[in-house]
Amino acid sequence: MVQIENLGRILEEHPFAQGLDPQLKELMVGCAANERFDAGQYLFREGQDAKKFYLIRSGSVAVEIYSAGRPPIVVESLHDGDVLGWSWLMPPNKWTFDARAVTLTRALSFDATCLTRKMESDHALGYEVLRRFVPVMAHRLHAARMQMLDLYGPAKKGK
């Protein structure tokens, strides 16, 4: 009980839960766990079942793409207050990237099976969770597009 109260407090502190109805928060906390990852430890790897998502409380996580015969490429860094992972939301529910803790990282993880079941039976919860995931996805898509633009390259051939 004490642990659930603590998790509730931790969830409240995360931007993801800002303005979330206390009852819905309580439903989410029932699927939550507090996790810690040492620097270098992988949270998940590409191809594994996406059974969780993470709200990063502190630390830094590198999202990486692995390619055989080449060193992994880091494509994004996530930090305190960020959300990690949405592959649990849609089939085939497999991670599409590796996620590695760059520094000691603390995160709340949410059991996808538990939360999905609650979201299906309580559509208010389902709506709130998805409403919070959509901007995260939109920002990531926007950031990925900007990275593709080569923002820092010369505009055209100069003199």
Binding site: V63, I73, V75, E76, S77, A143, Q147, L151
Partner: peptide, 23 residues
């Protein structure tokens, strides 16, 4: 400081410069 992409040994930030504003 942030970079668009980096190899595994880079322990700094990866992402576009605008993402730094939030932090």
């Amino acid at each position: 400081v942030t970079v668009d992409r980096a190899a595994e040994h880079w322990s700094g930030n990866v992402g576009v410069v605008t993402k730094l504003v939030k932090r």
